[in-house]
Design a protein around this nucleic acid. Sequence first.
DNA 1: CTAGGGTTAG
Length: 615
Amino acid sequence: MSSLRCITKHPTISLVESSTTLNQLKEIHTQLLVNGLLNGDDLLGRFAASIAVHNPNNLDYSNQVLSQCPNPTLFTFNSMIRAYSKSSTPQKSFHFYSRILQSSDDLSPDNYTFNFLVRTCAQLSSRETGPPVHGAVVKHGFENDPHIQSGLISMYAELGCLGSCRRVFGEIPEPDVVCQTAMVSACAKCGDVGFAREVFDVMPRRDPIAWNAMIAGYSECGKSTEALNLFHLMQMEGVKVNHVSMISVLSTCSHLGALDQGRWAHAYIEKNRLPMTLTLGTALIDMYAKCGDMNKAMEVFWGMREKNVYTWSSAMNGLAMNGFGEKCLELFSLMKQDGIQPNEVTFVAVLRGCAVVGLVEEGRDHFDSMRRVYEIDPQLEHYGCMVDLCGRAGRLDEALDFIVSMPVKPHAGAWAALLNACRMYKNMEMGELASRKIVELEAKNHGAYVLLSNIYADFRNWDGVSNVRQLMKAKGVTKLPGCTVMEVDGEVHEFLVGDKSHPRYNEIEIMLGEISRRLKLSGYVANTNPVFFDIEEEEKEDALRDHSEKVAIAFGLISLRKGMPIRIVKNLRVCWDCHEVTKMISKLFNREIIVRDRNRFHHFKDGECSCKGYW
DNA sequence: CTAGGGTTAG
């Protein structure tokens, strides 16, 4: 009786929500059929639409209901297009678009249809469908609809067509704040963050979303300083900061490895009681992980009520990067127990976790399970991880087998992983092969030349060393200057290799002297030895003591209170000599030193490093 | 009853 009343007033359909179970849907469906109300009022069509929009997990069921509908309305088809535009198979939207065009009821697509269809194209990131749909928009006369205009701008940004974004935007006589924000975001996504800023600067009204778009744009382009500056400007102008703003701020801190600023952001979120959403929590985990504070990252992780594949993958990747391979694999088990489906990014973390612990067989099993159990085709990255995994364990032939077995042409990264292993395990022939391959792919890959030169030096093959140098000169290979960044009391200090311009350089120099004195006392052989000289890695300077990380560590020793760990971020890989020296400093000065290099973390303590000598 | 811009992992 009560259900009948519900149906006559139609609220049964609006009862469909995301938590409605399939059984409940079936119950409602049965009531609709039993009560014979399906005729005349298009209840079934509305029911199908309602499922599609509010309960997209049951899109199949929605289709089933739709199939019992003799003459679905435009409303129903539009709802289906909308649902599929957000699904994992957006291309199915076009099926319903065709049904509109071919309908015997003379249905004609309206502004809603195109709005959703444009989103489908953005989702598909397809240059085949995007422009024709834009054409259809114009043909049907909807090109002046602001909803569709903003959608088109986002769509062309997905396609990487900045020119088209500008054309669409330019044809809007008086773009509103939404279209302007879409344009800011689009320009940044296409790499022209300068133009994004121009659009942003001339906006007559900037709401918090516009600010967030601009900050995120800087953040994505790696313009960290600009991102943080704009965030501060946003606060000074009294614009309401929300949790989305903080996601970009945290992401910037992750990028910089700026723990102090990251902690400040965390405190700001709590002080202002911003909602701790799933995304924000994940950004926090990533920030702590990329700043080397894995304890704090896991504290946040365990405190989160809800976790998705991003949350798990961030934590797992953080554990692997920080050298906690077993923990990473434990987390993987827990994730599966929790019923979260791993994806290709999760497997990058899993394989890295295996690599840092040297679990070759387990890594192989996980790699095989990708396709077999999860139907994920391994990508270049996964093959690269396998090469690294085998290579680290000294199984160079197996590593090479993985490269040979790649379904596509191996990328430089795979060969680089092999080359690194060749350096560690002193295999000159394979090292030569690997570096030749890298240089074929990337003629100016500085790291490849340096590693090869290191291998030759290991073999006292000075002709080889000299040939590599000549080759580099002939090809005009330039090196990226080594650079180390560290925070002291929230202030960022940058040290370039050989740069003595720091205001406290005199004190730093005294400390560098003190460091070498203590090193010598403890038996460290100064690196004037020509063998050491040639074993340096990505950097080549006359005096190894000028390597930026050493200068930064010296500055840390004089500027950070006793007991405070020294945290530094280096743009290149740490060189062998610096690694040795840092191990000893951690012991001699009783300091924890945490170094993030281009690939991973090194946690130095009591003369040991978490990477156990392989990086 | 179906619309628009900002947000996380490699």
